[in-house]
């Protein structure tokens, strides 16, 4: 029950955080691209719950869920959205580029597929030092059509590197449906053809995701080489705040909303978990978000004379 509550809390934090982000976006307090993860929370939360602090995470532009689940402080994430110096990337990255070295969160990468080779290299360093670490690398099913996906899987499998490839199959790459993306639809099969263990998981069921991640990380830590999970999920909202969603029928979204991963976990926690418990959780999460927003609003911005900082390292050579 305690474990379930932790998972529920993390998913709720992400959901409510993003709901607030959408509001703040409409109020023009957050700008740029904003890609929401609503509906996919079980994937980040289930996978990250199986990681150790010394493991590493590589993410995409849809990175709020991964960052929050990983423990990047919500204040720092929200401040980043606001472009403030207290943001987790000091306002250089915004929504798509959350980074946190302390949590070994190696960033939201906005080049589709661009994070996979980097994850392979992070894992290579662990392997060369003989450390039993896992690098969790998240990407969409759209990325599985990129060359970098194929190169990275082959290389990771060839060198038996400790990478957990997490393919979030939400059935759309922007407006391109899965059927229009992939000639062969079985992504796990495709991944297995590179010689790594791969299987599909119900990405709307956080317990199933956690179970799969546990199995995968155990195998990876034991030296079994990389694994790929195809996490079958769905984004309930538009691709980004710019997306008018012309490419799909509302009924498809409604159907998937019936499988909401948060509702599903709550149902599994009944009757021990009561309405009062739920209210208490929502209150706690709302307070955290309120705090993050207030802190972000009050935070300083980077002085403009710091514009060209961090292009190269600030060390005396």
């Amino acid at each position: 029950m305690k474990e379930h509550l932790d998972l529920l809390r993390e998913m709720t934090r992400i959901r409510r955080f993003e709901d607030r982000c959408a509001e703040l976006y409409s109020a023009a307090q957050i700008r740029g691209f904003l890609h929401l993860y609503v509906g996919e929370e079980a994937v980040a939360v289930g996978v990250v719950s199986e990681l150790d602090p010394q493991d590493a995470v590589v993410s995409t532009y849809r990175d709020h869920g991964h960052a929050l689940a990983r423990g990047v402080p919500m204040d720092a994430v929200m401040a980043e959205m606001f472009g403030k110096v207290t943001g987790c990337s000091r306002g250089r990255g915004g929504s798509m580029h959350l980074f946190d070295s302390g949590h070994r969160f190696f960033g939201g990468n906005a080049i589709v597929g661009g994070g996979l080779p980097v994850a392979v290299g992070l894992a290579l360093a662990h392997a060369m030092r003989g450390e039993p670490r896992v690098v969790a690398c998240f990407f969409g099913e759209g990325a599985a059509a990129e060359g970098e996906f194929h190169e990275a899987l082959n290389l990771a499998a060839l060198w038996r590197l400790p990478v957990l490839f997490c393919c979030e199959n939400n059935l759309y790459a922007m407006g391109t449906s899965f059927a229009k993306e992939h000639a062969a639809p079985d992504l796990a099969l495709r991944a297995s053809s590179y010689g790594l263990a791969a299987w599909a998981v119900d990405g709307m069921d956080v317990l199933a995701v956690r179970e799969a991640a546990r199995r995968a990380t155990e195998s990876i830590r034991a030296g079994g080489g990389p694994c790929l999970l195809e996490l079958r999920t769905f984004r309930f909202r538009a691709h980004s705040m710019y997306d008018p969603e012309r490419y799909r029928d509302k009924s498809e979204v409604v159907q998937w909303r019936d499988r909401d991963p948060i509702d599903r976990l709550i149902a599994a926690m009944r009757p021990d978990f009561t309405d009062d418990d739920l209210t208490a959780l929502e209150t706690e999460v709302a307070a955290e978000i309120d705090h993050a927003v207030a802190a972000a609003e009050a935070a300083e911005i980077e002085p403009v004379d710091g514009l060209t900082r961090f292009v190269t390292s600030e060390v005396t050579r």
């Binding site: 392979v120 290299g121 662990h126």
Partner: peptide
């Protein structure tokens, strides 16, 4: 390495980020 310029350059980046000097 295999013929995968993007992957092995990216792997160099990842290894460099993670304490190696590739």
């Amino acid at each position: 390495t295999p013929l995968s310029e993007s992957a092995f350059v990216g792997a160099g980046i990842g290894a460099a980020l993670n304490g190696m000097r590739p």
